[in-house]
Design a protein around this nucleic acid. Structure first.
Lengths: 331, 331
DNA sequence: ATGAAAGCGCTAACAG
DNA sequence: CTGTTAGCGCTTTCAT
């Protein structure tokens, strides 16, 4: 039993494709198709379990009801969770998610971007490191519905769903200072993304505001290409420098550091406090103690979908920039 | 500058659509298109940045170069990681991933399944709880390329990529017995999936083989609808029963239990050993100590893609059943 | 109340 | 060496 098309159905029933199409799209009454014919068709549809070919529909309509979700790595819990929520929200609206991981590689991002556009996704939710790339610019010029989250290129105006970086980071560090922290180090992956720079600014500001020593050597940058090895070295530096607090700019580096601490300095896990931008469930019980800045994942997803839906519907992009407030979790 | 189609290009250049199409598909030489015409077209293509409409291509060819990835929850690290690897492997082959989370809901799974099929995905990688559902049966009957992983319905023959359950579970528990464990409890989510049953069988077998007391009350099942509350109650039971080892049937319940232990029984974290089917990175340094059975994620992904590719290419499904060996991680 | 026919963008067999 | 044409499955205008 091969798949039936509208044409087959029409032939089998001795009616025209048009009639079938009208009935299928619930325009039977509107188009004055007799009740009898409608029932005939509907019954047959069920009987043969007719499934419309969405590709043909898409070609005709110019829409696919598919949204592209482009992130550095879909297996990163942050992107996976947001992806999941977006998937659910879109599902309600009859949309599907096509995913792509860019690995923060420009070339891959551009290829994926083009593939997505060619595949006629109706819109794009994207965490890009290369917002000013040719591919994105060209899409922007075509007024392609897009919303950017997590990352921003301040030089490019677009729809952004972001989270405050500097102030919350400063505030979190302030808590540790209030509790007596004196020597505060920072460990970050290479801040080639704007938001990471802002988080580091928050760190610096906290030190300045409290008149703490501005020791540039306590600001350690990890080599992204060999995170574990490099983090180990930098962590060692900070530990030996005698810091009582270490600040991290994202959850990945925090998790790595927790692991390293437990492996290499188990005797020190209760002497040091971690501050992490981005939360992870394990922070609830991991040692060292972690004060974290939790991004409002639900809200990021919700706003992204909202804006995207609006742009698709109205066909006008207003370059909305939304900055959400993260939540400080003390432990 | 709106998007150009092949027709536009042909008109602009005063050649026919066919010629353009041939050149685009690198059949220029084969079809004896003059070098000059080829260059003319290729140059123009670049100039206007022509992007072929994949939807039209798909309609014509009957293939979309898209694979559906259907899992209970894409934000679960296990599925997210496998998804990521599959994405990469497929990318090499020119395929893309359409994702769907079923939430283990039959209705949602069937809807997604149909949507995917209608959208003409070329194949499906799926971790389903309802392998014997109508929707799946109907696809199977149409010889639709599918490969199942993680979960099996022994009553349905299909392409399965699985991991051994019973023996590894038994073996992991054996290690704890060798080290002196006497009273071994088990905590599991409701084992409505076949593999969970096998894991529990492994637990029982380990007890039998070692002549340990078969106390059915030490086998605690958590209510899936309120995991945290239920797990807390069951964990309490086991702790009070004085177990020295607790066995878990998947990583989710292990993670929950680790969290609960640290929250509620911090004084006991070093007195009890956990055995977990499924590994998580945090087990490296979490307390209680966790002996885990790590699923070979890379291999699962690789084999799934292999089989799927073969089925798509040969158009014949051989109902291959591959059982991979997990890796015991002692800590 | 229903049908014929054009067309979405692309491919490819067939004709010159 | 290149062009004409039919057709993938669907929608929709216009005609009857």
């Amino acid at each position: 039993m091969k798949k039936k098309s509208i044409k087959d159905i029409a032939q089998d029933l001795g009616v025209s494709k048009t009639t079938v199409s009208f009935v299928l799209n619930k325009k039977g009454d509107e188009k004055n198709i007799s009740k009898k014919t409608q029932k005939l068709i509907l019954d047959y549809i069920k009987e043969v379990n007719y499934q419309p070919n969405q590709i043909a529909k898409s070609l005709k309509n110019g829409t696919t009801n598919t949204i592209g979700y482009l992130v550095p790595d879909i297996s990163n819990p942050f992107y996976a969770k947001i992806g999941r929520i977006i998937e659910d929200l879109l599902w309600e609206m009859g949309y599907h998610l096509l995913i792509g991981s860019t690995d923060e590689k420009k070339e891959k991002e551009e290829l994926l971007l083009n593939m997505f556009a060619n595949r006629q996704v109706d819109g794009l939710v994207i965490a890009s490191c290369f917002i000013s790339s040719d591919a994105l610019e060209s899409l922007a010029k075509q007024n392609f519905p897009m919303v950017f989250f997590d990352r921003e290129d301040p030089a490019v105006s677009a729809n952004y769903i972001l989270v405050e970086n500097k102030a919350p980071m400063k505030e979190a560090i302030q808590r540790t200072i209030d509790k007596g922290a004196k020597k505060i180090g920072l460990l970050s992956i290479t801040p080639d993304v704007y938001s990471l720079k802002l988080r580091i600014d928050g760190y610096k500001q906290a030190l300045i505001d409290n008149g703490l020593e501005q020791d540039e050597s306590l600001l350690r940058i990890v080599d992204n290409n060999q995170i574990k090895e490099s983090a180990q070295k930098e962590l060692k530096y900070l530990i030996e420098a005698g810091v009582d607090v270490i600040v991290f700019t994202n959850n990945q580096i925090t998790a790595t550091a927790i692991w390293l601490m437990n492996m290499l300095y188990p005797e020190k896990v209760d002497e040091i406090t971690f501050v992490s931008f981005d939360n992870l469930d394990i922070f609830d019980y991991s040692r060292p103690k972690v004060i974290s800045i939790a991004q409002p994942i639900d809200n990021i997803a919700k706003q992204s979908v909202n804006i995207l839906e609006e742009v698709i519907r109205t066909k006008v992009s207003k370059n909305t920039r939304i900055e959400l407030k993260p939540k400080l979790i003390e432990r």
